[in-house]
């Protein structure tokens, strides 16, 4: 029963959503909206579970004086301090909002800016001419870089045209082929799940 119930619930919910997608019955649209709302509410409830997990992990770090336990202490103080402050002042409080904007936004931007350097290191490894594929990748990368820079057109007007052809024809065709394959694969996986053939997402082998 523990295994059958989620499979049946998944089947019913899945069929309702599929019917609501294709058939113009007002009742089904409402059911779909209700299911979407339930998903949203369960997501909100799960946030609390996330906080509990963070608390357990970092409390143990502090109790056992693991390496960098001070960082765990700072995390717990910041998390609960901000949470309790928000409970009393509400989400529109000026200080509540500015603490968030002054910390998460610049830190997020700093992490994001690392991408530029990581792109370079990934490209360096990928572009080493060890295989034919890597050599083609290098040639395509060079045309792409030169085609985007003014120096490319200065070297030859052929370079920006080649870059446009690569991105608009080759790249678009490849991306669409992958997208079609992905959609077909996702649908086949959903059929396996809806029919209860695949249950490993329930834990273990799903027997």
């Amino acid at each position: 029963m523990r295994r059958q119930l989620p499979v049946w619930l998944g089947f019913i919910a899945g069929m309702l959503v599929i019917i609501a997608r294709y058939f113009a019955f007002p009742g089904f649209t409402q059911v779909q909206k209700t299911l979407d709302n339930w998903a949203m509410y369960s997501g909100a409830a799960a946030f609390l579970m996330g906080m509990i997990n963070l608390t357990i992990v970092h409390k143990t770090n502090i109790q056992r004086r693991r390496e960098n336990w001070g960082a765990s202490l700072v995390l717990l103080i910041a998390m609960f301090g901000y949470f309790i402050y928000g409970l009393f002042t509400g989400p529109d409080d000026k200080l509540f909002v500015s603490i968030f904007n002054a910390t998460i936004s610049p830190l997020g931007s700093a992490m994001f800016s690392l991408l530029a350097f990581y792109m370079l290191s990934a490209a360096y490894r990928a572009f080493r001419m060890k295989t034919l594929e890597a050599t083609i990748l290098l040639a395509a990368g060079l045309i792409g870089i030169l085609g985007n820079a003014p120096i490319g057109a200065a070297i030859s007007p052929w370079i920006p045209s080649a870059r446009n052809w690569m991105t608009e024809i080759l790249n678009t065709a490849a991306m669409r082929a992958v997208t079609i394959g992905t959609a077909l694969g996702a649908y086949a996986a959903m059929v396996r799940i809806l029919l209860g053939i695949e249950r490993s997402y329930l834990g273990g082998r799903g027997d």
Binding site: V178, T182, A186, A188, S200
Partner: peptide, 28 residues
């Protein structure tokens, strides 16, 4: 570019069927 192996497109969805080697799943 950065990983040793990449599952492209539908290979991600094929993984559980492929790994299980169950003919019923492989059929899909």
């Amino acid at each position: 570019a950065s990983c040793d192996y990449a599952l492209i497109g539908d290979e991600l969805y094929a993984a559980s069927a492929y790994l299980s080697k169950d003919p019923v799943m492989v059929g899909t």
